[in-house]
Write a protein that binds this DNA or RNA. Structure first.
Lengths: 149, 149
DNA sequence: CAGGGCTATGAGACGTAGTATCATTAGTGT
DNA sequence: ACACTAATGATACTACGTCTCATAGCCCTG
């Protein structure tokens, strides 16, 4: 059945637990705790952050749950310029990220042109394209403002 | 005087040691060994690989030298789909990478349109763009051929 | 060419991100 | 209520790096 709700940015978030149910995973205490925490975070977050915020939940479980959500395309993982790792809620189906190099805030963007471009790039690229990662480093508006002082 | 030679793919590679000299770093034995090894590799390589190939050179030195070369834009670092890390020689000034999801071979491509596109994306992106990472996952021609059997 | 000074090195401890193992616990279907 | 299985936490381990520190090696100056 699995009515997959079309995610709309900043609309009332469909509760993420349904994602687990849909995939046949159990909805357990630790998972709920993690998911609830993520629901509150609008910016990127690290695994350690969650681990710290939920002392009752084991580190392994945090990573396991993140992996699960990653597989369900509910969150996504990104690499910052300095090689760090961040996770972020996936608000829209397919998108890319901006990461502020000053404060680390993660933003989303989607530009169909990029997808199209990558497809047409097939000529220039040897082989068959099966995926891609695009991350844009930015200085976010508030950091720009701050540095102007 | 640092005559910066325009790098051309598969042309006789200008010896990478000049990069060290240009930046005021010493051209030492371990560095030479690493650089010579890189010169032979046309595909991506990992730090561990170099470490293994040069038993006389310490692991820290391998990483230190890679960092040095990274800073000199002689090599670049990329993340594969599975979260692994690869380094690759930077043949052209600014470019992006294709990584074969089967065999891990790294290729380069450069498409000016992407740079232009990212610039014009400024409207859609909050903040000022200061950099980006683009990685394209592919199935390379030889792996395609192999799987057709 | 001897000496001094600074750079680079290797060994190994340490840090961070994540996975594997394994005994225990907790959902779930009947 | 019970048994079956999935999930959990603790902990060890791996990958990829960085930090520290004592030692070695360049290289400049006298």
């Amino acid at each position: 059945m699995a009515t997959r709700v079309a995610l709309k940015a900043s609309a009332a978030r469909p509760d993420l637990t349904s994602v687990l149910e849909d995939k046949g995973y159990r909805v357990t205490g630790p998972r709920l705790n993690i998911i609830r925490l993520l629901g509150k975070k609008n910016e990127g977050f690290s695994a350690e952050e969650i681990n710290y915020a939920l002392p009752g939940v084991g580190r392994a479980t945090v990573f396991r749950t993140l992996k699960l959500l990653l597989g369900a395309n509910v969150i996504c993982k990104l690499t910052t310029r300095d090689g760090g790792v961040k996770y972020s809620l996936a608000r829209v189906e397919h998108h890319h990220h901006t990461v502020c190099v000053k404060c680390g805030t993660v933003g989303d963007f989607r530009d169909v042109t990029i997808e199209r471009l990558l497809r047409t790039l097939g000529d220039e690229i040897q082989g068959q394209i099966v995926g891609h990662r695009i991350e844009v480093d930015v200085v976010c508006p508030s950091c720009q403002k701050a540095s102007r002082n």
